Amino acid sequence: MKIFIWLIVVLMLGLPVQATEEVLSFENEAQRRLYLQLTAELRCPQCQNQNIADSNAVVSVDMRQKTYDMIMQGSNRGEVLDYMINRYGNFVHYQPPVNRYTLWLWLAPLLMLLGLVGLQLKRRQQQANEPLSVQPQPESLDAELDKLIEQYRSKK
């Protein structure tokens, strides 16, 4: 009986969490899809790499509301993105445009890959140019160890 009461208490504690979801009404399905696409595509300027659909930061709530308002006023995807980028910068869009400021974002992975390939080729070339080292025979190791032990004992 106690378990049943605890189960009901735990379930009741979860009710306020469900009540925090936004309820937005759209005129048609295309507007709803556009809204969902944009909120997933826009990054929260305050959060660590989180889109505005998943963030509860104040700035994300404001961005979601502005996105909704613009869609309801008839703005298309490009207009909403332009507004958000002009207001918050290229950081808010997960796919920044290619320009002189963001070029390094696009080229960095390629340059890193080329650097790693170059290092690997250089390492292989060095290994190919090195002469094969002769491994000491176990008997000579024993003789060297005996010699070192003898030198150590003679110092005492």
Rank of each mutant, 00 (worst) to 15 (best):
residue 142 D to T: 10
residue 23 V to S: 07
residue 92 V to N: 11
residue 20 T to K: 09
residue 24 L to H: 08
residue 89 G to T: 08
residue 118 G to P: 00
residue 89 G to S: 08
residue 146 D to E: 13
residue 22 E to F: 06
residue 38 L to R: 06
residue 5 I to E: 12
residue 36 L to K: 14
residue 67 T to R: 02
residue 80 V to L: 03
residue 53 A to H: 10
residue 144 E to A: 14
residue 5 I to W: 08
residue 81 L to N: 04
residue 72 M to I: 11
residue 97 P to R: 13
residue 134 V to R: 13
residue 143 A to H: 05
residue 46 Q to T: 13
residue 95 Q to P: 00
residue 73 Q to L: 09
residue 61 V to G: 03
residue 79 E to S: 06
residue 125 Q to N: 10
residue 134 V to M: 11
residue 151 Q to D: 15
residue 77 R to M: 07
residue 96 P to E: 10
residue 4 F to L: 12
residue 44 C to S: 15
residue 138 P to F: 05
residue 108 A to L: 12
residue 105 L to G: 02
residue 46 Q to M: 07
residue 56 N to L: 03
residue 20 T to Y: 05
residue 116 L to T: 07
residue 136 P to E: 13
residue 88 Y to Q: 04
residue 70 M to I: 00
residue 77 R to I: 00
residue 46 Q to Y: 07
residue 149 I to T: 10
residue 131 P to W: 00
residue 57 A to M: 05
residue 155 K to G: 04
residue 38 L to M: 09
residue 13 L to N: 04
residue 76 N to P: 01
residue 2 K to S: 07
residue 53 A to T: 02
residue 38 L to W: 12
residue 34 L to G: 05
residue 71 I to S: 04
residue 151 Q to S: 10
residue 39 T to D: 11
residue 72 M to S: 09
residue 32 R to H: 03
residue 82 D to K: 11
residue 71 I to D: 06
residue 65 Q to W: 03
residue 37 Q to P: 00
residue 7 L to T: 12
